[in-house]
Design a binder for these strands. Sequence first.
DNA 1: TTTAGTACTATGTGTAACAAGGTACTGTTT
DNA 2: AAACAGTACCTTGTTACACATAGTACTAAA
Lengths: 115, 115
Amino acid sequence: MSNLENTQAQMRKGVLEFCILSIISKGEIYPSDIISKMKEAKLIVVEGTLYPLLTRLKNAGLLGYRWIESNAGPPRKYYALTELGQSYLQELNTTWNELVAAVNQTANINTQSHE
Amino acid sequence: MSNLENTQAQMRKGVLEFCILSIISKGEIYPSDIISKMKEAKLIVVEGTLYPLLTRLKNAGLLGYRWIESNAGPPRKYYALTELGQSYLQELNTTWNELVAAVNQTANINTQSHE
DNA sequence: TTTAGTACTATGTGTAACAAGGTACTGTTT
DNA sequence: AAACAGTACCTTGTTACACATAGTACTAAA
């Protein structure tokens, strides 16, 4: 793996949890669809990453799930945020905004400037 | 360590390399001053993190350094970007901007909107 | 020559993403 | 009904990297 690819992967890693919670916050969703949504946003995540992450978040009380039957295959686990998860997500939102500000300060860049 | 603190730390991890290269790109600087600059930007980094990181970047050909004597203590290693490091930093810049866009897409947020 | 301050270095630990492989359920084809 | 294909969920081992901690080395002042 090249330096660049590795560093890009490192950057992605840090925000996975935040992105996945954000996606779930928009409504009940099951893992395979989360992967699709992430892919749409150009954030590749694989099953071996997602399942343990969801379990970790559930055990932390941030997520809950219920089984819903599918008409094409086995039942699916639909995840949703708990109340704790919602407030946690708000804090991550703040963290993210602060991080963007901090990084842009070191880079002296205004990435989203409008003229 | 709480969930939140841990996740915040994970977010930071991903961008450390980018931030440190950005800081060095503004002119020769030695490690302790890099730590100060990072602290100014609210990105705490400690010696045990910075030194191995600098060594890794140097071994990858992205950084070089020269010894400069100090009038208060031992000599200092002043780091600077190599040409390779400069083009690498540009690529990380692109990566960072794309990441911000991707995260904001999952979050449906425009963090820097001006009215 | 001892002490304090500053700078650089090394080692061990823990977290989390990822690769790879596996299990289980459902509907369709033969 | 048996085999197969498609879908979904889960587990294990590896690797990278930040961090805590401790240690070494150089300089100047007491």
